[in-house]
Amino acid sequence: MFRLIRLLNTSIGKKLLMAVTGTLLLLFVIGHLIGNLTIFMSQNALNSYAHWLQVNPMLWPVRLGLIFILLLHIYTAVKLTRSNQHARRTRYQKSGFHHSLFFSKHIVFSGLGVLLFIIFHINHLTLGNGISELLPYLDPKGNPDIYGRVIHTFSTPLYPLLYLLGLIVLGFHLNHILRGVFQSLGFYHDNYAPFLDFLAPALTAIMVIGFALIPLAALSGLLTPTIVLPPYGP
């Protein structure tokens, strides 16, 4: 316990905490993507997967765990950012590395953007605010028709646009930080540099494109709607 407290009081320890919590959150996002992609198998595949999640006794422990990890990630980020601002309070009158300002703000802003996106997404598709008229629909097997909800929601450009925007922000966040994760964990080594430098953009691309396929497929009519209601918005 002493080791852990002392470790987390150092800058290297805090960076480790950022990397570990970030990696756990990323693993969740990967799992979330795999689960969501069942939408391309069939209506039944997605709906029974969603039903399995809903009745799973581990649902709330995992949810609470994820919220705790997310809060820890945010708390540590705030602490690190504040100590960084404290370490350099006088700016240079002339900035030579013109990209530095963009990047230094970038990770905090993209993190903030991802947080807003998460809140919006949970409120929208998980809690069902704004799509209440879709909630009563069941599929032929008697499970709530998540498939129908998703396709109907994404049938007009407004929501696909908002989700794509959120995904781009998530992409920026992942791409900038993945290499840093390996550094913080101490894995980064010249021998593996080409692989790790490839992994960051590759994993980011898989995440962003994977998730983007769903609203794009729904918008383009590739997926057949199962709930027929007047479409949303413009």
Binding site: T10, K15, L80, F97
Partner: peptide, 21 residues
């Protein structure tokens, strides 16, 4: 050395790599 570095008030690495540049 790492703890003295923190103690002296230096900031944390946030992966800009301007140091190496």
């Amino acid at each position: 050395m790492a703890e003295t570095m923190d103690h002296e008030g230096f900031g944390n690495c946030s992966n800009h790599y301007l140091c190496a540049e």
